[in-house]
Each structure stands twice: as structure tokens, then as C-alpha cells.
Design a protein around this nucleic acid. Sequence first.
DNA 1: GCCGGATCGTTAGCATGCAAACGATTCGTA
DNA 2: TACGAATCGTTTGCATGCTAACGATCCGGC
Lengths: 154, 154
Amino acid sequence: MTELVRLLTRAQKLLRAAADDAMSRHGVRVGQNLVLEVLWESDGLTPGELAARLHITTPTVVNTATRMESAGLLVRRKDPADGRLVRLHLTPKARAAQRPIEEARRRLAEHATATLTDEERRHLRSALEKIIKQMSDEDNPLDPAVPKGTSSPE
Amino acid sequence: MTELVRLLTRAQKLLRAAADDAMSRHGVRVGQNLVLEVLWESDGLTPGELAARLHITTPTVVNTATRMESAGLLVRRKDPADGRLVRLHLTPKARAAQRPIEEARRRLAEHATATLTDEERRHLRSALEKIIKQMSDEDNPLDPAVPKGTSSPE
DNA sequence: GCCGGATCGTTAGCATGCAAACGATTCGTA
DNA sequence: TACGAATCGTTTGCATGCTAACGATCCGGC
């Protein structure tokens, strides 16, 4: 029960650590590689659009983009039509890293699931999708026992 | 393939967010609840012991413990026999939170896996265990294309 | 009995997430 | 046309992870 959550957390953590290790060999951290993955397909997105696709918040994208800009992976350009928007464009350096990074990611995923049969992978995918659907559908108020602001401010 | 990793990451993130939300209702953040979980069973552990059980690093435990100390959840005591050691002891406040927090955690896990059959849960558990074993057994050098530190004995 | 290596916890600096507050720009409406 | 509301990106501050460097303490040989 709770055990399943623990296993899921542990597996994800091991995968993330391995991914960060692999990505670091290519001069990119694990979070940045997710930004790259989207921009490789859709260059020139805004921070807000990127955040929506990655299921993270806009400030997180902004901060990551700033680090990537320092690393020479992307540049910011103001949208000529709408002064509020900023568009993120990849540099040649970022594009050159696409092939090896995608290869590293593929190899990692293959290694992680190497001991699973095709049927086990299908079951795993199905179960994860059910959990994701359940958790994102309605964020119903679990544990209404203690209202949010009432807990011991001291 | 890579898709499985993505699903696993997404599911874990949703679970963690829901857990943090639920725990916050009890004045505890998601990382702190893991420390509590261990100390409820084994009070007086050292930061190093705690880190080993939680599969995190000692500095992370130290920082979390400092925040929990500020929140009045635990106290540090020097080990009388070994001056290098620090032992973390829970306060009555932390002990009082055990029941409701465990209940909240149980409810969350139940909700997350509500749409899974018992068989699906067994399959999920089995697959996750295989991934964990594969990732933690030998951290073999994935992606040897770009060596990390210029050279390595092989 | 002393001293150098081993073993601790801590600190510092970074990456990745979040929420909240702020500032600039655009848009709809009066 | 001008002004208030909506929509952006950014900044700030925090929590949780990590590695590397540091300092204090202990232990085994000499």
C-alpha cells in the first residue's frame, strides 16, 4: 500500500540520479535536458508554454533558462508582436548535443527496464497511467481532518 | 521505452505534490515526514544512520533536522560515549503528530492506487523492484562515449 | 602517551522544484 | 482615448536533494 509509493519514489530517484550522471557527461544537467527535449522539437517557445508542456511552474523554467543561457545553450529574444513575451531559442551548441543526449537517454531507459519482459512493461505503463489519471483528474481534498491554516503556527 | 521513464517521473511527482499538500496540513513538509517515519520507530538515531535508512546524504539529513529543530519537532543531543556523534530525539509534538500523519499517508496511497486491481498492484510492485534492483545493483558505466574525468582505468 | 588516519557532523555552494509578490505590457471597455 | 483588469516574465524566499571542503573527535601504532 504505502509500500508501493515508496518503491515508486525510490525507482524514480535512482533513475533521476543516473540520468543526471549521464547528462552531465554532455555538459547538461537533468532538468535542462527536459527543456532541450522540447525546444529541439519546438524552438522559440515562451517560458510559460514550456512550463505547461513540462508540467512545471514558470519560475522554474525561467531559472533553468537563465542557467542554460549562461551555459551558452539558448538565447532570449523579445517577441516583436507582444512585448510581454520572451522566446527561448536554442544555440548551435544545444543543437549539436541533441544526438548524443538522446542516445544516452535511450540507453539509460533500456538499461533500467532490461530485466522486464514486454508484458511487464505494458503492465507497468498501464498501472502508471492509471495512477497519473487518478492523481491529476480531480485533486480532491484528501484528509479534511485538519483544515489548512490551523496547524500550530507556534 | 523512454516513455516509461517519463510516466514514472510524472507519477512520482504527482504523488510527492499530493503528499506535501497533505503533510502541510499537519505542520510537516514532505521530506520531514520521512525523517519522522524512521524516528517514530527508532528514536535517537544519528544523522548518518538516518541518511542510510532514507537513501539520502548526510548533509540533507542535517539540513532537514535543523529545520525540524526550529519547528520544535526534534532536539539534538551529543552522544555521551562518542563526541563525534549527534543523536536526534523527537519531541512530544512530533510524537503527537504520528497518528494523523500516518493516517493521511495511508489515505493518500489508497487513493493513488484506487483504480488498480490487486493483481495490477502486484505487477507494479514487481516491476518497480526489478528496476530498483537493476539501477542499484551495479552502477555500470552507461554512455562511455564521453569519459567523465578524461581517463579511467579499464 | 602521542600522532596521523579514519570517522563523524557541519557548512557552503549549486540544481531543481514550489508559491507569492512585483513590474511591465496588452487588451477590453467606458 | 484612457484606464482598469488580465496576462506575461522575473524576483524572492523556501524545501529538498547533491558534492566538496572543513573541523572536531576517536582509535590504532609507535
